[in-house]
């Protein structure tokens, strides 16, 4: 059961790699915008943020996250919680994203 949940979580994260922050032009997972992701009984609960509060692309990114998550086989429902604390910073990027932007790790 545990292995199945873990597999589902990885599937969703893989799928979310296809959703980009349009301004930075990089996927939201490696940018560190996904703070938490739980999968249970076909329901995904995502806690995420934006690079800046009031981002004009916010509604589009959230819809993108919803649409892409929902398209993962076996997912029945997607719940997204948008938070501003802790505030996003480039420190939250993965090493791959930091390398892409030339940020010192």
């Amino acid at each position: 059961m545990v292995a199945e949940r873990s597999l589902d979580r990885e599937s969703v994260l893989d799928a979310l790699h296809e959703v980009i922050d349009p301004e930075l032009g990089y996927n939201i997972v490696d940018l560190g915008l996904i703070y938490a992701l739980e999968v249970a009984a076909g329901v995904i609960r995502i806690t995420m943020t934006m690079t800046t509060p009031g981002c004009p692309a916010q509604d589009y990114i959230m819809s993108g996250v919803y649409e892409r998550s929902k398209s993962v086989p076996g997912i029945n429902d997607v719940q997204i919680k948008l938070v501003w604390l802790p505030a996003w910073s480039p420190r939250l990027m993965t090493p791959a994203a930091k390398a892409h932007f030339g940020i010192q790790v």
Partner: peptide, 23 residues
């Protein structure tokens, strides 16, 4: 380009490939 991206591609995000604003 940023506003253009939102107008043209914003609603396609998560449904298929979209270009980056810089493209």
């Amino acid at each position: 380009p940023f506003l253009t991206w939102l107008h043209r591609y914003g609603r396609s995000l998560g449904r298929g490939a979209v270009p980056r604003v810089q493209e």
